[in-house]
Design a binder for these strands. Structure first.
Length: 569
RNA sequence: CGGGGCGUAGCGCAGCCCGGUAGCGCGCCUGCUUUGGGAGCAGGAUGUCGCAGGUUCAAAUCCUGCCGCCCCGACCA
């Protein structure tokens, strides 16, 4: 493409409303423009990058035996009522009515639609397994869209759904997708890591997230330096401690006046003790019912673990009125002694022989409380957030924490949707069975953003070759000099004939402007046609990533470029 | 939804306290010079100052309401 004819509005100024580097660069490199909150237009340059990712995904999905479909974005309410998610999905589901007052939603995901399709068409085990995927725009009415294309309301997603006759088959389908995902993200040039994840409201027994390590990521992950264990922070298990640590002899319980002392820090300062000697009593509202969760004062509760342990639909820290009703005191003085709610405790309480906790009475705490003697716990469980100082739950090795961007997620769904929506088949013995499902998503725009987040320098984007919207840019330093212009055109035609994706920067701009733009938009190879080298019959080829420049005779350019491209640079 | 910030030319911003002719840089247009890392000179175009009310002789500026955007939190497949 001739640059002079391209719709590629680049910018020098950093957009004021973009925080992330990838977001800033996508705007500056003319890839995206915002239409409204969380909704973006992709310009030609950005859309080419999107299509590169899509193409890689298509090839790997097809290779793994999945077949592409295209499903509607507008979906009828009835389907969602059937799965139960019309009620449970919440406000992220954008609902609306048509002229006949019938209710619809914009698809945030397509389990219902695909399950409906498959249940009507697949009747026998002979038609299983099947894996269908699509690349579609999804809409989720996010409370707070942010980070540009990273977390927006309208976004492109690949979603695949597998249907199997039994668990063993479902496991194979899952593994196939897992392998396909590894190939996809490897081909995208991303440094990623699959981690165990909580399956959340989507349900199912098991899931992995594919994470790209990046400081700007929204997610925190944990991984072991010694073994292969890796998990989302909210999923990461904490090993059950073997031995009681505290051997202090028990003492009689004692009430102490602690006026206005509420937080762990305040208690520690006031009583001159360490957080590890205090027990936090957090009152949660689990589906509206108060539950007390106990944890050592130096630890943090992992709400996902609490939610999973309780098996509740919703979990949040209790509002003040519920705390008052449950403990008889205002926030800040809750304790386990004498409380009427369910009590569950983190493993960190095991072996404590005495501790300090709230007295369920305003301005009072208790000391020398002995768990088991002064209160009973319904269960001890792993309820806390793992820390970098904790051992790996698998091998005991040292673990590390990192920020990361979730680009893909694979789930074993089990029968959550097939059961609710009656996706049944007849097995070899003629008995009716429920299909076992899996679902597998990739955020396309987010993958591109993550690639930029991980591949840029102070001059702009540094595209990994497989995602680069163009592979080569030819820069004649002065288009008004006929020899330069002609040489550039000749190289351009040659490369184009060979199928190379190439830009000819034929703009009547100063060389500096062209170089800056070429760097900004991150084209992997730049061929500079200038007067000095041309006098020797040569041009310069610069690698965007390494900034290394080599001189080549004009005749050798084609072979060089083709070999660079075929070796993936 | 709670807290904070911001809406002035295509982009980045000043002006607002203390009311009185709407500005700067970049970009854009024209001409000349220049031509290997965002050129120089000269000339030029561009604004319902987010919207709606109010106060005032007079509002970008003060007051009220609304809308939009950004950040933090809550929330979240």
């Amino acid at each position: 493409m001739r640059y002079s004819e391209m719709f590629l509005p680049t910018g020098r100024e950093i957009p004021s409303d973009a925080e992330l580097i990838s977001h800033q660069l996508m705007i500056r490199a003319g890839m995206i423009r915002k239409l409204t909150g969380g909704i973006y237009s992709y310009l030609p340059f950005g859309y080419r990058a999107i299509r590169k990712v899509e193409q890689i995904i298509r090839e790997e999905m097809d290779r793994a035996g999945a077949q592409e479909v295209f499903l509607p974005m507008v979906q009828p309410a009835e389907l969602w009522q059937e799965s139960g998610r019309w009620v449970h999905y919440g406000k992220e589901l954008l609902r609306f009515r048509d002229r006949h007052e019938r209710e619809y939603c914009l698809g945030p995901t397509h389990e219902e639609v695909i399950t409906d399709l498959v249940r009507h068409e697949i009747k026998t085990y002979r038609q299983l397994p099947r894996n269908l995927y699509q690349i579609q725009t999804k809409f989720r009415d996010e409370i707070r869209p942010r980070f540009g294309v990273m977390r927006c309301r309208e976004f492109g997603m690949k979603d695949a759904y597998s249907f199997d006759a039994d668990e063993a088959g479902a496991e194979i389908s899952y593994q196939k997708m897992f392998e396909a995902y590894k190939r996809i993200f490897t081909r995208c040039g991303l440094n990623f890591r699959p981690v165990e994840a909580d399956s959340g409201a989507i349900g199912g027994s098991f899931s992995h997230e594919f994470m790209v390590i990046a400081d700007s990521g929204e997610d925190a992950i944990v991984f072991c330096g010694a073994c292969h264990y890796a998990a989302n922070l909210e999923k990461a298990e904490v090993a059950k401690p073997d031995q009681p640590e505290n051997t202090d002899p028990p003492l009689p319980i004692e009430e102490i006046h602690t006026p206005g002392v509420k937080t762990i820090e305040e208690v520690c300062a006031f009583l001159r003790v360490k957080p590890g000697e205090v027990v936090k009593t957090l009152i949660f509202s689990a589906d509206g019912v108060a539950v007390a969760v106990l944890i050592r004062g130096d630890q943090e509760v992992n709400e996902v673990k609490v939610k999973n342990h309780l098996g509740c639909e919703s979990l949040e820290l209790a509002p003040d009125d519920l705390i008052l009703a449950a403990t008889g005191s205002p926030r800040g003085f809750a304790g386990a002694v004498g409380i009427k709610t369910r009590i569950i405790a983190d493993y960190s309480l095991l072996g404590m022989t005495r501790c300090i906790m709230g007295a369920n009475r305003e301005d009072y705490h208790l000391r020398h409380v002995k768990p088991g003697r002064d209160f009973q716990v319904e269960a001890h469980a792993d309820l806390r957030v793992i820390r970098e100082t904790d051992p790996c739950p698998r091998c005991g090795g040292a673990i590390h924490l990192a920020r990361s961007i979730e680009v893909g997620h694979v789930f074993k769904l089990g029968t959550k949707y097939s059961k609710a929506m009656k996706a049944l088949y007849l097995d070899a013995t003629g008995r009716e069975q429920t299909m076992i499902m899996g679902c597998y998503g990739i955020g396309i725009g987010r993958t591109v953003a993550a690639a930029i987040e991980a591949n840029h320098d102070s001059d702009g984007i540094v595209w990994p070759l497989p995602l680069a919207p163009y592979q080569v840019i030819i820069t004649p330093v002065n288009v008004n000099e006929k020899s330069l212009s002609e040489t550039a055109n000749r190289i351009y035609d040659t490369l184009k004939d060979k199928g190379v994706e190439v830009i000819l920067d034929d703009r009547d701009e100063r060389a500096g402007v062209k170089f800056k733009d070429a760097d900004l938009i991150g084209i992997p190879l730049r061929i500079t046609v200038g007067p000095k080298k041309l006098a020797e019959g040569k041009v310069e080829i610069m690698s965007r990533r390494s900034k290394e420049v080599i001189d080549l005779p004009i005749d050798a350019v084609e072979a060089f470029v083709l070999s660079k491209i075929s070796e993936g640079m």
